[in-house]
Amino acid sequence: MSRPEVEEVELELFVRALKLRHGYDFGEYARASLRRRVNALVQAQGHGSIGELTARLLRDDALLPVVIAGLSVPVSEMFRDPAVFRRLRDEVLPLLASYPQINIWQAGCAFGQEVYSLAILLEEAGLYDRSQIYATDFSDAAIARAQEGIFPAREARLYSENYLAAGGQHSLADYYHARYELITIDERLKRNVTFANHNLVCDGVFCEAHLILCRNVLIYFTDPLQNHVLELFRDSLVRSGFLCLGTRENIAFARAGRDFRAVDARLRIFQREQQRA
């Protein structure tokens, strides 16, 4: 057996320190991406090694939010993968329309791009007034950004193209105000969104959801954690409730994956089975 390299050991000690000292458990995060993110933090903080960052993390509490924000690295765009939003609009929302109150959980809301995409979709379907979106993330910094709903104006063109490709009925500009280099999402889109801190690793069921969106979050998790979160989603969904994952996610290795039936296998839209497998 060859000796592990110093950096591998340092990464494990960092994960251990974060858990023991601050209670955040990244033990079941897939190492390849975690290592890149931790190394990016090491560089950004001007340290020479993960070990140096760990030493500071143990004593400097002010560093914790920076580390948590750095380990969440939310990257998204409005109406990313337009075909998914079109499918939600055409096939899923009409089914949700039969419920008097529609609960939607956006798990891992990043900076809110998908939250507001969803709100627009519901608004245009005439369902938003009886919908409640729970937008959660484990990073307070991400939640604060999502709540603001402010994005760089240079993104607006891409967002607009996506919106139209997703079957948007108006102009995306109807939903934001452009000012200088920024666009700000219209306040009325926030009226039925509740932002809250929720960590998929350790927090439990908090609502009865008709639709859960969690796109490109589980790709960072090991098989056991992926399975754990799929169980959490299953237990949070009403019977026949919908789950929407990222378009390249694979749930074939998770036992709880059997509790979901593909509505659109290519776009990774699933429905909770009536009975557990």
Binding site: R31, A32, S33, V73, V75, N216, I219, Y220
Partner: peptide, 13 residues
């Protein structure tokens, strides 16, 4: 990415 378990992993970082 190739994970330490020898399987493919994806990221949107």
């Amino acid at each position: 990415l190739l994970g330490v378990d020898g399987r493919f992993a994806l990221s949107v970082d």
